[in-house]
Amino acid sequence: MTTALPSRTTPPAAPPAETRRLQLVGDAGLDGTTSPAAPRLVSYLVLVPEGTDLGDLFAKDGPRPEIRPVGAMAPAAAPRIGDGAVQVDPARRVAEVDGRQLDLTYLEFALLAHLVRHPHQVHTRERLVAAVWGYDHVGDGRTVDVHIARLRRKLGAAHRHTIVTVRRVGYKYVPDRQSPGAIPRHRP
């Protein structure tokens, strides 16, 4: 089945007022002519503050402000999240417990990072599926239960209690507030 779009019978509307001040810098020479033998140029959209003199910005031998593509900007260092015992470094995708690096799958890491990022907050199974697996994931809450069980096993006996089951609702992360070397409390 194909769908045809109606043809435009009215002329296009005038551009919005804020775009009328934009200038197009093309591949035309200084005299306004183009050369068919000239190499193809790559186009960039450069946003500059109003009042910037484009002649100074693109002067051949003059000093220029630094211009970088947005994708080339150095990302801000993401801080480590977590309490003293459980640490998650999202930038390096590393999780540690008491300084020991955990061997986590992609989804286990995402689940632990989500829980640690939101301590003491109760998350329903559906909310965890949406946040970690994505809205298009087809499955039930049992998937979350299995991953939580694996996470608890990998956290070890001393820290498995930090992921608390909220009966008939879901799970929450409760950071360890104990001093290092203290005997862990057992929670149901």
Rank of each mutant, 00 (worst) to 15 (best):
A157N: 10
A131C: 00
T162S: 11
R127K: 15
R167L: 12
H137R: 13
R142H: 13
R153A: 11
V146D: 10
R167H: 13
A158C: 08
R152E: 06
G139K: 08
H159Y: 13
G170R: 06
I163G: 00
V144A: 05
H159G: 03
W133Y: 08
V146C: 10
G170H: 05
H159E: 07
L128Y: 03
V169S: 06
H147A: 11
R127Y: 14
G141D: 13
V164R: 15
H159Q: 15
V146S: 10
V132W: 01
V164N: 00
I163E: 00
T165S: 13
I163M: 01
V166E: 13
A130S: 12
R150K: 12
V144L: 05
R153F: 15
R152W: 03
W133N: 09
W133R: 13
H161F: 09
K172W: 01
R150A: 12
A130G: 14
G170I: 10
R153Q: 13
V144M: 15
Y135N: 15
K172L: 14
G156C: 04
V146I: 14
T165F: 12
V164P: 02
R152P: 02
V144P: 03
V146N: 14
Y171S: 04
T162G: 00
R167A: 08
Y135G: 12
V144E: 03
G156F: 01
H161Y: 10
D140L: 03
H161I: 06
R127G: 10
R150L: 10
R142N: 06
D136F: 10
D145L: 02
D140T: 10
T165H: 14
A158L: 10
R152S: 01
V138F: 07
V144T: 08
H137M: 09
Y171N: 04
G170T: 14
